[in-house]
Write a protein that binds this DNA or RNA. Structure first.
Length: 353
DNA sequence: AAGCGTCTCAACCGCGAGCGC
DNA sequence: TGCGCTCGCGGTTGAGACGCT
């Protein structure tokens, strides 16, 4: 955009909390025409002013929005300022190269997945810096737990899944993590969203003649679950009964193993009907006491390596060829990857988003 | 095609538990 | 005992999609 465009940036690309519109993030779903129109109204741009702003909107709107604008407004679209527009601003409107608050881009996902696959989970708060991400550790953890873990099962909920959620919600209430433990591969956030979107009304119509015992097992098991207010999923798992629908995921697992499984471990367990999923959760965990965090100033190297479109296995798993990460410098991490199965991990969608 | 309202769900936020010092 | 840090959980938000008029 030629000339002084700072004012236009503030008006168009940042909301009233001084946050970047999510649609600015590259690689996200493109905005359709109606959404662009909504945005246009939302920021209070009058019809007479739109010619001043239309190119800016095209930048933030993605492919669909650009096509729409090109077609309807007959303008030329340039994305040359996209990177600058993406950067959050301070309260006085200055560019702030700090943490992004937008949705995760495929590139960011790749960074996080590659780093965890290479070095495991050792400290969420330090991981963003080490991996070259401009995210909070909390955001990284959330993204990994709810979206990037290889054992995550995505897609529609089956009838059996719905029944399981309904039954366990009646028993446990809004303890989504506990409910998620009953549905291998599903996250608590996903179940929570599905509940509010689809099952909340449905649950009110469930026949009151159905007892808790009929839903989830014996009275002892019900009490064990009801009394579990610690957030510890072990108790719930131990008390699982074959009467519980959709619990194939833990059948066949020795009891001694189940007792020591965390929620994440449970989720990673494979179902008899689903393709086998490796339980890699523990492989991602690193004893934090072993970490001697490298303080090398490799920010330039980090920037450089992420300019590459993709990584090869050699880039990722051969330390001498992996200058992009600030690695925890432990012998176990550096010399013997915690992912002994990594080379034949066909189920890990590292290359494709 | 445009306008509008509703729905979905990824991301964010605040809080509390657990742990080490 | 108190403090700080990390992690996990549940509630909330809001961008984008969708459907209706």
């Amino acid at each position: 955009m030629e000339g002084d465009h700072r004012g236009l940036d503030n008006a168009l690309f940042f909301d009233n909390k001084n946050r970047v519109f999510r649609s600015l993030k590259p690689g996200l779903r493109a905005l359709d025409g109606s959404t662009v129109r909504l945005r246009w109204r939302a920021v209070g741009v009058m019809d007479s002013e739109r010619p001043r702003y239309r190119r800016g909107f095209a930048w933030c709107g993605g492919v669909a929005a650009r096509k729409w604008l090109c077609r309807s407004l007959q303008v030329e679209i340039s994305g040359q300022y996209l990177e600058m527009m993406m950067m959050p601003k301070t309260s006085d409107g200055e560019k702030m190269p700090g943490r992004s608050r937008a949705s995760w881009s495929p590139e960011e996902d790749q960074k996080l997945k590659a780093y965890i696959k290479r070095y495991g989970i050792w400290n969420w708060n330090r991981m963003p810096e080490a991996s070259g991400l401009t995210r909070s550790g909390k955001s990284c953890r959330l993204r990994w737990m709810n979206y990037l873990r290889p054992e995550i099962k995505r897609g529609n909920f089956s009838q059996e899944d719905q029944e399981t959620i309904l039954k366990w919600h009646e028993l446990l209430g809004n303890r989504w993590s506990a409910i998620a433990a009953k549905l291998p591969g599903r996250t608590d956030n996903e179940i929570k969203n599905y509940w509010h979107a689809h099952l909340k009304k449905l649950s009110k119509n469930i026949s009151s003649s159905t007892t808790l015992s009929e839903l989830v097992g014996t009275s002892e098991e019900v009490e064990a679950n009801k009394n579990d207010s610690s957030g510890n999923q072990d108790l719930l798992l131990i008390s699982d009964s074959p009467k519980v629908p959709n619990m194939d995921g833990i059948k066949g697992i020795p009891t001694s193993l189940q007792i020591h499984m965390s929620t994440n471990d449970i989720v990673s367990s494979s179902s008899s009907t689903d393709p086998p999923v490796e339980d890699v959760s523990n492989q991602y965990m690193i004893d934090q006491d072993e970490i001697n965090f490298s303080s090398s100033n490799s920010s330039e190297i980090i920037r450089g390596i992420w300019e590459l479109p993709y990584f090869s296995f050699q880039d990722i798993f051969m330390p001498e060829r992996d200058p992009g990460f600030m690695a925890p410098t432990t012998a176990s991490c550096q010399q013997e990857p915690m992912y002994s199965d990594v080379c034949n991990d066909a189920g890990y969608d590292f290359w494709v988003d």
